[in-house]
Amino acid sequence: MAFRKIRHVGDADHRIVTAAVAAAEQHTSGEIVTIVSDMSDDYDDAALVWASVITFLALSVIAFMPDFYLGLLYGLFGGWDHDWTTSEYLALLFLFLGGKWLGSWALMQWTPLRLALTPKHIKMRRVRARAIELFRVGTESKTTGRTGVLLYLSMREHRAEIVADAAIAGKVAPEVWGDAMIALVDHVREGRPGEGMAEAVRQMGVVLAEHFPKGSENPNELPDRLIEI
């Protein structure tokens, strides 16, 4: 799956988030990784489904009002004097439905519309799946004590996820991160993604410091900087 390289946040946001990560890690052996993305999925399957649904609805309307559409057909092709065969009817019907499907699919290529028509639960699952995928590539088992945790923000879906390594997941229940998630999403909706991620990082740092306080040896094993993909 290909994702466009888009600048999601400004330089000031990068500095804010990077500083927040560095500050949070001063009090914990946990390592926080922050990633921001434009979208977590292209949702091309949603375009296919909606194009098919619209086409089926068009066929249903034709079946419900055949006389109306036959009148349009005769008007377009020279009146009632033409003797239409069954094959001609079917050919025109398939051409119409094919054009309806292609037109609907083309309309669904407009990303805001495709996102708006994708059910919320599907977007939630795709964002979560993308976060887990990125976590496995760049964070999982990358620290000595398996204390890495990923904060992932998907801008267009207004969704965020926290995925933690084994040691953290064994001590911190997922619902503990709830306040950090709420703070982040609220800031994103108000157009302040950098501040939202920084606040989420701060709250994550408090949780991590409680369960994984900083030890005498605490190497910085994962990048503090905000990563854009």
Rank of each mutant, 00 (worst) to 15 (best):
H187M: 14
D67E: 14
L73I: 12
V188A: 09
I122E: 09
M39T: 14
I227F: 08
E199C: 10
L115V: 01
N220I: 05
I227D: 00
G71H: 10
K142A: 04
M39Y: 14
F64L: 13
P119E: 03
V163A: 11
V9F: 04
K5T: 15
G99P: 01
V17N: 04
A20V: 11
T55H: 03
G78R: 03
Q26Y: 01
A12M: 04
S87C: 00
K100D: 07
A91H: 08
G79H: 05
I35F: 04
V21E: 11
N218E: 09
P112C: 00
E31H: 10
P66Y: 02
L90T: 10
R189M: 08
L48I: 10
T28F: 07
G205Y: 08
M108S: 05
I132R: 10
K214E: 08
A24P: 08
L70V: 14
M108A: 02
Q26D: 15
E228H: 00
G103H: 01
L150N: 06
S154N: 02
S104W: 02
L222S: 07
L90H: 06
K100E: 07
L48A: 14
F94A: 10
D13E: 13
F135P: 00
I182E: 10
F3V: 13
P193L: 06
H82W: 12
V33N: 06
L72E: 09
L76K: 06
G138V: 00
K171V: 10
I32E: 08
F94M: 12
W110Y: 14
S87W: 13
D83H: 09
L92P: 00
L113G: 03
R126W: 06
K123G: 03
T18N: 04
N218S: 13
H14G: 01
L113C: 01
A164R: 06
A19H: 12
A20Y: 12
A58R: 02
D44K: 13
S87H: 07
A209F: 04
M181V: 11
R4F: 14
K171N: 07
E190A: 15
